[in-house]
């Protein structure tokens, strides 16, 4: 076992982990931040996406000890402290960007990372950026709409598929 410490959602976090402890398991099991989901555990589905030092990463494909000293943001850190939803979260709600909700934390984290780098993405850019996030409900259409809306763009032009 080894000691690991990092900042999670702006708060200091530390714990004892094994070398093989994945970041997602540290977040879920040690810190009880269960909003980050494990869908496939093979870095395909993106349900576990979190931000490490501002970059979107798959928390199932990174060890907790690799995040030593890092600033980690999870889905729990996206809304304002008073509970006010972020623009992306609000848009997911308004545009029905979730069905069962399992993929949603990863979708929101990826979409948030996209809009930070590219505040007004095209529909094609959104679809390409979300390639690593899989929705088993196949609710992609409204997810893309929600990201367009969160970036302040008209969603009327998105063709129904």
């Amino acid at each position: 076992m080894a000691q690991v410490s990092m900042s999670v959602n702006g708060q200091p976090a530390e714990g004892e982990v094994e070398g093989r402890t994945l970041l997602v398991d540290f977040l879920r099991n040690s810190l009880e931040l269960t909003g980050t989901h494990v869908g496939c555990d093979t870095s395909q589905c993106g349900a576990c996406v979190v931000h490490v030092n501002g970059a979107a990463v798959k928390a199932c494909t990174m060890f907790a000890l690799e995040a030593e000293g890092a600033e980690v943001t999870t889905i729990e850190g996206i809304a304002a402290p008073d509970g006010t939803l972020s623009a992306v979260q609000q848009a997911f709600q308004e545009h029905h960007g979730l069905q069962c909700g399992f993929c949603t934390p990863g979708m929101v984290m990826s979409a948030t990372a996209l809009l930070k780098d590219n505040p007004r993405p095209t529909e094609a850019e959104i679809r390409e950026y979300l390639q690593g996030n899989i929705c088993r409900c196949t609710g992609y259409h409204n997810i893309v709409k929600a990201v367009m809306a969160a970036s302040g763009q008209d969603v009327g032009a998105i063709a129904a598929e």
Binding site: S43, G46, V49, V52, A55, A56, V57, K58, T61, M62, S110, A113, L114, Y129, Q131, G132, N133
Partner: peptide, 9 residues
């Protein structure tokens, strides 16, 4: 390569 999250690592 891969997807954005993979490319960040």
């Amino acid at each position: 390569i891969g997807d954005p999250a993979v490319r960040n690592r």
